[in-house]
């Protein structure tokens, strides 16, 4: 099933479904509204508990304001709900701490996550916040796969990370702005660390 055909019903973009099922309304922080089936919501432990606690009837869902998810934007939330609808009814995996952690990325998920890294990180962030175990697993797997065969410099570019030097410069600038003595302390600390030996890895 393609991303476009996923049974997500965004009030802004699609019609209300004919099926007589319980659909909850959610609103992103940029005021995008989504209708999500009860079964799809079960993929998110956070949302599932929330709707259970609210105990809405079908009428409440229509008459009361949409449930606000204040720290996730519409673009990210749309991906989240598309994923939940596609995987609704599936068992939620239990992390038994086994090594290696075996996670397969299904074709639908791969297409859904064909997005820029910034949005991918937001998706991971949302999956963690909403406690959607399998979405977190597959999105983290995608990020882990990106690390394969890359040098530290390439990894910095891929993961948008600063090098130690850049990081230090930024921290120093911030510290100096607050306390000029901080730089001396930092340098002394670094010197001590340097004397502590080195390692290939």
């Amino acid at each position: 099933m393609s991303v476009e055909n996923a049974p997500v019903v965004d009030v802004d973009e699609a019609a209300i479904p004919v099926e007589k099922k319980m659909y909850y309304r959610f609103e992103s922080n940029d005021k995008k509204e989504f209708r999500v089936s009860e079964l799809a919501i079960q993929q998110s432990e956070t949302l599932n508990r929330l709707v259970e606690a609210m105990g809405y009837t079908s009428e409440d869902v229509e008459n009361k304001p949409a449930i606000a998810i204040e720290n996730i934007d519409g673009k990210t939330l749309k991906l989240v709900f598309q994923w939940c609808e596609h995987h609704k009814g599936e068992a939620i995996p239990v992390d038994d701490g086994s090594v290696p952690k075996i996670v397969e990325i299904p074709e639908f998920d791969a297409k859904l996550m064909d997005i820029d890294n910034g949005l991918l990180f937001k998706l991971i962030w949302a999956a963690d916040y909403l406690n959607i175990v399998q979405l977190l697993n597959v999105s983290c797997k995608k990020v882990a796969n990106m690390a394969q065969g890359k040098t530290p410099a390439q990894l910095r570019r891929v993961y948008l990370l600063p090098s130690d030097e850049e990081d230090e410069a930024a921290k120093r600038a911030a510290q100096e702005a607050q306390d000029p003595r901080a730089r001396e302390v930092e340098e002394e600390f670094e010197e001590r660390k340097r004397q502590g030996g080195n390692s290939f890895f």
């Binding site: 934007d73 990180f121 991971i124 999956a127 963690d128 983290c140």
Partner: peptide, 13 residues
Amino acid sequence: TSPAHLITLPDVA
């Protein structure tokens, strides 16, 4: 704020 890069992701992730 939204995560700017990898290290700002939650610890669990």
